[in-house]
Simulated scan of single mutants.
Amino acid sequence: MSRLAGELFITLGVVMLLFVAYQLWYTNVLAERTANGAAGSLRQNWERDQGAAAAPEVSAFEPGQGFAILHIPKLDVKVPVAEGVSKPKVLDKGMVGHYADGALKSAMPADQQGNFALAGHRNTHGEPFRFINRLAPGDPVVVETRDAYYTYEITSSLAQTPPANVSVIKPVPEGSGFTAPGRYITLTTCTPEFTSTYRMIVWGRMTDERPRSQGAPPALASP
């Protein structure tokens, strides 16, 4: 009987190890593969649209639809941005999600005023926001779309706040230090690592907007 119990414990231990490996490693592999494919498809579509005569600007997207690429040069992050913050449709696929529903609806980069608010996983499933705690004031973040590049400069952060505190993604986000309407970006993720107890917040202000025809901004220039 004791031998059988021992074998069951060993089997259970192996299963748990496999599950941990799946969560910490294989979900990243799958998500990165999906996200890279989405980024490639976006660029192909943009190139096709640029070849079309007077392709109209698009400002509304379906839930889960990719529409931009987020670059965080300091962290070597390049990840697609999709509409909505659904885990199965967006976040678990390794993409960053744009808050776009109901009371959580936030601005788009092209809007002349507002807060472009994004969510991303800190651990597993590609973990694009794993190290956003390393961002400091002055660090650039670039949002690339079909029509333009939008460069933001990180200004401030909040180490943790309850998930229910949605004021951090308001048009003038509370706690950011911004006091008047402007063109802002907010990055949100879970904290501490491997939990979803709180949210970590990073804010930035737009400093440059340029059409794709002018090429990538200096923040994306190769060293």
Rank of each mutant, 00 (worst) to 15 (best):
L118I: 02
T161N: 05
A136W: 05
A136E: 06
A110R: 01
A82S: 14
P192R: 00
D147L: 09
N133E: 15
L187I: 12
K78W: 02
D101L: 04
D92L: 06
K170E: 13
T124Y: 15
D147G: 13
T145I: 01
F131M: 05
S167Q: 12
F116L: 11
N133A: 15
G114H: 09
Y99V: 05
L187Y: 14
G177T: 06
T179H: 11
R134Q: 13
A100W: 08
T197H: 11
N115L: 06
I154Y: 01
R134C: 07
G114S: 07
E127W: 09
I169S: 02
S86P: 08
S86T: 12
N165G: 10
G97M: 14
P80R: 09
S167P: 04
G102P: 04
T161C: 04
G94D: 04
E144R: 01
E153I: 07
Y150Q: 11
A107P: 04
G126R: 12
K93E: 02
S157V: 12
F116G: 06
P109A: 02
T186K: 03
Q160G: 07
A180Y: 09
T195W: 13
Y149R: 15
F116N: 08
L158A: 08
T145K: 04
K78S: 03
T195I: 12
P128Q: 05
N123G: 09
E144T: 10
T179W: 06
V143T: 11
A164L: 06
L135R: 00
T124F: 15
L91K: 01
V96Y: 11
M95D: 10
T189Q: 00
T161R: 06
P140H: 14
G114R: 12
T195L: 03
A164E: 05
V141S: 09
K105R: 14
I132C: 07
Q113D: 03
G182Q: 00
Y149I: 15
